[in-house]
């Protein structure tokens, strides 16, 4: 039986608390705070303590979904990205760039957030960009 601890950063908000995943036989079993992390110093909020639950949740989405005729259908990443790009282009051409808004997330990295705002401003052409940590 194998047991290891994998350090990570909590993905629930922008604070960036250090956590350790307890991995038993390749499966994440629980989350504990990383004691030597400079941000949270061995403390966590209730969301951080339960971080492992969504990773193993049976409700977790594993493929992109496209809504067709009112219901979500499983799709490949290529299909989903093509569909999104086509629709964004159509909306931009018909209603103008300010009809589009982009909401990004603390669950992705700083760099990905930077890319998202660059995409919003430079590619779509709007300043309608916001972040979940500001809600």
């Amino acid at each position: 039986m194998g047991c290891k601890f994998v350090p990570a950063v909590c993905s629930y908000c922008g604070t960036g608390c250090g956590i350790l995943f307890e991995v038993i036989d390749g499966k994440i079993n629980s989350t504990i705070p990383l004691k030597s992390h400079p941000v949270n110093q061995g403390k966590l909020c209730i969301k951080g303590w339960n971080l492992h639950e969504y990773i193993n949740s049976y409700m977790r989405l594993k493929t992109p979904l496209i809504k067709e005729d009112g219901t979500f259908q499983k799709a490949t990443w290529d299909e989903a990205i093509n569909h999104t790009a086509t629709e964004l282009n159509r909306i931009k051409q018909r209603f103008g760039p300010d009809s589009i808004g982009v909401l990004v997330s603390a669950k992705i990295t700083n760099e990905e957030n930077y890319l998202a705002q660059k995409f919003t401003r430079a590619v779509i052409g709007t300043n309608n960009v916001d972040h979940c940590a500001r809600l």
Partner: peptide, 12 residues
């Protein structure tokens, strides 16, 4: 020690 942090580990 991992990335400068002392963390628990199961040795086998």
């Amino acid at each position: 020690e991992l990335d400068g942090h002392l963390i628990p580990h199961g040795f086998t």
